[in-house]
């Protein structure tokens, strides 16, 4: 690879500021995760372990949501892992500009999430991409864990979670995570089909399984979109699979 030109100081500061502000803003959501996790029956330590070691918000919310609803550990793990697949795809993109090896690469993998990838890819110069990725990832890691702890302690102090509507807060959090993914037609189709699958299977299978069955909607819509492409109807709204 070519040697990067040094990044001007003003530009470096700009990228660092962007990463830190994303870290602070995202970290705040950690409060809701901490409170919901404890409300779902996890201990403060288990809650903190998830934020520190799993460190991918959607999967964490899904795991505690399914445990809280009485789903099996296996279905909770499966759903969290299916949601975590996208991080592997982000890592493919991040590895293009990040030249990290050994333990540094392990740390880079750990902080490969929506926010760090978005800020990294969003920069023009390779040096700025790397700074953006590292600063954002580490800032989110710090903020998310700190606020998870605050939320877990608060959740513990609240008592019965239903009195405070914390069970409904989980559904609200999933709505907020889903919302940006409804921008494309395929996203909307997958979401609607998944909702039907989940609704129809709730009475038939144990808790936690309807969510995994809902994942089939992504396969169906993904394959149908493929057919559309083959028939040359490209350029339909939402045909672009990129999130």
């Amino acid at each position: 690879m070519t040697v990067d030109e040094a990044l001007p100081e003003s530009r470096r500061k700009e990228v660092v500021r962007q990463g830190v502000s994303v870290g602070v803003a995202t970290g705040l959501y950690g409060v809701s995760f901490g409170a919901l996790s404890v409300a779902s029956g996890l201990s403060v330590l288990q809650t903190q372990a998830l934020s520190l070691l799993m460190f991918t918000g959607g999967s964490q919310f899904a795991l505690v949501g399914i445990i809280g609803a009485g789903g099996s550990g296996t279905s909770a793990i499966a759903t969290a892992s299916l949601l975590g697949i996208r991080n592997g795809l982000y890592a493919l993109q991040v590895s293009q500009f990040l030249k990290a090896h050994g333990p540094k690469r392990m740390l880079a993998a750990h902080i490969t999430i929506d926010e760090s990838t978005a800020v990294g890819i969003g920069q023009e110069e390779p040096a700025a991409q790397r700074i953006g990725f590292w600063v954002t990832g580490l800032a989110v890691l710090a903020g998310w864990n700190l606020m998870t702890f605050v939320g877990a302690l608060a959740g513990n102090a609240l008592g019965d979670p239903k009195t405070w509507g914390l069970d409904a807060a989980a559904a609200g959090a999933f709505c907020a995570l889903l919302w940006p993914r409804l921008a494309t037609g395929d996203g909307r189709a997958a979401a609607v089909l998944a909702a039907f699958i989940a609704l129809l299977t709730i009475p038939l299978v144990p808790a936690g399984i309807p969510v995994i069955l809902a994942a089939v909607a992504a396969v169906i819509v993904g394959c149908m979109a493929h057919g559309r492409h083959e028939r040359g109807e490209d350029g339909l709204p939402g045909a672009d699979p990129t999130p």
Binding site: L82, L89, G187, P241
Partner: peptide, 11 residues
């Protein structure tokens, strides 16, 4: 790319 939308909707 569609998996998160389907799973979140199911959740």
């Amino acid at each position: 790319a569609l998996l998160p939308a389907a799973l979140l909707s199911g959740l």
